[in-house]
């Protein structure tokens, strides 16, 4: 029978703790996702990540203790680094935070005419740190995103109050066509509260193999419905995401020109788009 040398036993326990940590982090993130189904997908994603990070932090500390290292010094270093980072990067973090909240709900979008403090112009760029305006006299004004959290901002675009644009992320594994079709059906249930001349428009903001940054825009009928509709749209995005399948695995979906050379299986549908 194999007997583990005593010197290695703590490492075995540490490995078990890390394995359990992985499991608990997955379960925790899943439960948070379930509990936040009606929240913005962006907020839910952030919450899931936060829970996972906290659990991993705790599991890491336990694992380190198990192998006999002192965690006090480690915790002190981490805390000091954190405080230093907060102080040094305060403005950048403010901007990132503001961008995060503008991703949850945009009071303006690219192309809108807005006014904030003495600045007025058309929004031509929204990046992680700044929002860039093009003024009437062709100048660029770069405004820190944090400014939009502190200062009153006026969106002067015609009927801007009607437009509800909700940004959200979709994992790269989701079949966008199926998801959009499902989302449209679910948003159709809200049509009594929406301007029916404007069916939902789903636009792509950016894309990577891992994630697609999208936004859905609807036009509301009554200004006082705006907040409740925002919640409803978030909820329906989350629901549609849960039901959307992955893209078809046939060749064209992933690689249009690399169709496999094997004879196709008899099927009434054949390979989908």
């Amino acid at each position: 029978m194999f007997v583990l040398p005593p010197a290695l036993t703590p490492f075995l326990y540490a490995a078990i703790i890390l394995g359990l940590t992985w499991l608990v982090a997955r379960v925790g993130a899943f439960l948070v996702g379930e509990l936040m189904q009606q929240s913005s997908p962006q907020v839910a994603l952030g919450a899931r990540r936060l829970v996972a990070v906290v659990i991993w932090l705790m599991g890491g500390i336990l694992a380190i203790q198990e192998i006999g290292l002192s965690v006090e010094v480690l915790l002190l270093v981490v805390a000091l680094c954190g405080i230093a980072a907060l102080i040094a990067l305060r403005e950048q973090l403010e901007n990132l935070g503001a961008k995060y909240f503008s991703d949850v709900y945009s009071p303006f979008k690219l192309g809108d005419q807005i006014r904030i403090r003495e600045h007025e112009g058309r929004v031509i760029e929204i990046n992680a740190m700044t929002t860039v305006l093009l003024t009437a006299d062709d100048r660029l004004v770069s405004l820190p995103n944090s400014m939009f959290m502190r200062e009153p901002m006026v969106n002067e675009s015609p009927q801007a109050w009607k437009e509800l644009t909700v940004p959200f992320s979709v994992p790269g594994s989701v079949d966008l066509a199926e998801f959009e079709s499902e989302l449209r059906k679910r948003l159709g249930k809200l049509r009594m509260r929406l301007d029916r001349r404007f069916p939902p428009v789903v636009t792509t903001r950016s894309r990577s193999p891992q994630v697609a940054e999208l936004a859905v825009t609807v036009m509301i009928r009554r200004a006082e419905d705006r907040e409740s509709l925002l919640t409803e749209v978030h909820r329906r995005i989350a629901e549609a995401l849960q039901t959307a399948p992955s893209p078809p695995r046939s060749a064209p979906a992933t690689s249009p020109l690399e169709a496999p050379r094997v004879p196709p299986a008899p099927s009434s549908e054949g390979p989908p788009v």
Binding site: A177, E180, S181, E182, R184, K185, G188, R191, R196, P199
Partner: peptide, 15 residues
């Protein structure tokens, strides 16, 4: 434009 069938038109266009 609000019909469920229009979702399939959008599906084709998105695909």
């Amino acid at each position: 434009f609000w019909s469920e069938e229009f979702s399939e038109y959008a599906f084709y266009n998105r695909r």
